[in-house]
C-alpha cells in the first residue's frame, strides 16, 4: 500500500547518505595526492596516516577521553535515570529531571561556552582545574553523556514495573540485594547502549572540545577540524575507511550477540 514515490524517495535518500561514504572508501586506495581523483591502486595514504604522529596522538587522547567520559556518564547517568524512575515523588524530582534533560536540547555552542565559563570561574576561585586540557574535555563530555544515559536508563526502567524488585524484597532480599540482583540486570542493556552512545558522542565532538580543551587537549575531531579548514587530504579518506571498518565490525558483533540472546 506504500505509494511508489515513497519507495523511490527511500532509495534516493539512502543513495544520498551513502554516496560520499562509498567514494571516500574507494578513493582511500587511490595513489593520487588529490582527494577523489583516481591515480591507480595504492596503500600510500594508510602508510602516511600511520606516520602522522600528530593525528595518532590526538586519536589516542580521544579514545582515552571517550572511554573515561563514557564510564563516568554511565555511573552518573545510570544513577540519575534510576532515581528518576524508581524513587517516586521526592522534593526536587522535577528539577533533577529538567537538569538531566537540559544538555539534550541545549545547542552545543551554549553548553560548550557555559562549561568553559564554569572551569575558568572554578580555577579562579579554588585553583582547580589548573588550566584546561584532557580532564576538562572529559568532564564536558561526561556531562553530555550523563544526560543521554539518564534518558535511556529511565525509559528502560519505566517499561518494567516494580513488581520484580518488590517480589525480591518480599522473599527476604535486602533493598541493596534486590537492587544488585534484580534492578541492575534490568538496567544493564540500557547502561551498555548508553556507554556506547556516550563514547561515540565524545569521539565525534568538536564544539565542546574546542571550548574546554586548551592547547594540551587536542582531540582527534579538533585536530581533524583544523586540517579540514585548509581543505581535504587523502589521509582523511584513509582514516574514514578505517573508522567505517571498525564501526561495521562492532555493529556486526553487537548484532550477533543480540541474535544469540533471542
Amino acid at each position: 500500500m506504500t505509494p511508489r514515490l515513497v519507495r523511490v524517495l527511500l532509495w534516493g535518500g539512502l543513495a544520498f547518505l551513502w554516496l560520499p561514504v562509498v567514494l571516500l572508501v574507494g578513493y582511500a586506495f587511490s595513489a593520487s595526492s588529490v582527494p577523489f581523483r583516481w591515480g591507480g591502486f595504492s596503500l600510500r595514504w594508510f602508510a602516511a596516516l600511520a606516520a602522522n604522529d600528530r593525528l595518532l596522538e590526538a586519536a589516542w587522547l580521544s579514545l582515552r577521553v571517550a572511554a573515561g567520559s563514557a564510564t563516568l556518564a554511565v555511573l552518573l547517568g545510570g544513577a540519575t535515570g534510576w532515581v528518576l524512575a524508581r524513587h517516586g515523588a521526592f522534593a526536587g524530582r522535577s528539577l533533577l529531571g529538567t537538569l538531566a534533560g537540559a544538555p539534550l536540547v541545549l545547542p552545543e555552542v551554549v553548553t560548550g561556552l557555559s562549561l568553559l565559563l564554569l572551569f575558568v570561574a572554578l580555577e579562579g576561585a579554588t585553583g582547580w582545574p589548573a588550566g584546561r586540557g584532557a580532564l576538562t574535555v572529559l568532564l564536558a563530555h561526561a556531562t553530555l553523556g550523563t544526560a543521554y544515559v539518564a534518558v535511556i536508563v529511565q525509559s528502560r526502567l519505566a517499561t518494567r514495573d516494580r513488581d520484580l524488585e518488590e517480589a525480591a524484597q518480599d522473599l527476604g532480599a535486602t533493598p541493596a540485594a534486590a537492587f544488585a540482583t534484580v534492578t541492575l540486570p534490568l538496567m544493564a542493556p540500557a547502561l551498555a547502549a548508553g556507554w556506547l552512545l556516550a563514547f561515540t558522542l565524545s569521539l565525534d565532538d568538536v564544539v565542546l572540545a574546542s571550548f574546554t580543551s586548551g592547547p594540551s587537549g587536542t582531540t582527534l575531531p579538533v585536530a581533524l577540524f583544523s586540517m579540514l579548514r585548509l581543505g581535504m587530504t587523502p589521509e582523511v579518506n584513509a582514516l574514514a575507511t578505517l573508522l567505517l571498518a571498525a564501526a561495521a565490525l562492532t555493529l556486526g558483533l553487537v548484532g550477533l550477540l543480540l541474535r544469540g540472546r533471542d
Partner: peptide, 25 residues
C-alpha cells in the same frame, strides 16, 4: 543502512563533501 554512515564520524563525512564539491573535486 541509515545509521551506519554515521559511524564514519561527523567531521569526516563533512570532509568528504569538501572533496566532492571543490573546483577540482
Amino acid at each position: 543502512a541509515v545509521l551506519l554512515p554515521f559511524w564514519t564520524g561527523f567531521l569526516i563525512r563533512i570532509g568528504a563533501w569538501i572533496g566532492l564539491l571543490r573546483d577540482e573535486g
